[in-house]
Computed example of a mutant assay.
Amino acid sequence: MNRWKSAIVLLGGAAATTAACLFAEPALAGMVLMATVFCAAFTKPIIGNTQVPVNAGISVDEVRRYRLQHSGSTISEAAAAVARR
Rank of each mutant, 00 (worst) to 15 (best):
V63E: 03
L22R: 14
L11F: 13
L68S: 00
L11R: 10
A41W: 11
A78V: 03
A78N: 06
T17G: 10
K5L: 15
A29P: 03
E25P: 04
T17F: 09
A40F: 07
N55H: 12
T74I: 01
M34L: 09
R84C: 09
I46R: 04
V82M: 00
A27T: 13
I8S: 01
N49H: 11
V82F: 00
N49S: 10
V60D: 06
C39N: 06
E77D: 15
E77P: 10
F23S: 05
S76K: 01
K44E: 12
Q51M: 06
F38N: 02
I46G: 12
L10Q: 05
V63A: 05
G48E: 13
M1W: 08
V82R: 00
A41P: 02
W4G: 07
W4R: 12
Q69G: 09
V37C: 06
I47Q: 11
A29V: 09
L28S: 03
D61R: 06
F38Y: 06
S71V: 13
A14K: 04
V60I: 08
E62Q: 04
R3M: 03
G12N: 13
T43Y: 07
R67D: 05
A15I: 11
S6F: 05
S73N: 09
V32P: 08
G13Q: 02
P45D: 14
C21D: 12
G72Y: 02
T74R: 03
G12E: 11
G13A: 04
S59G: 10
I47E: 05
A35C: 08
Q51K: 09
S73M: 10
K44P: 02
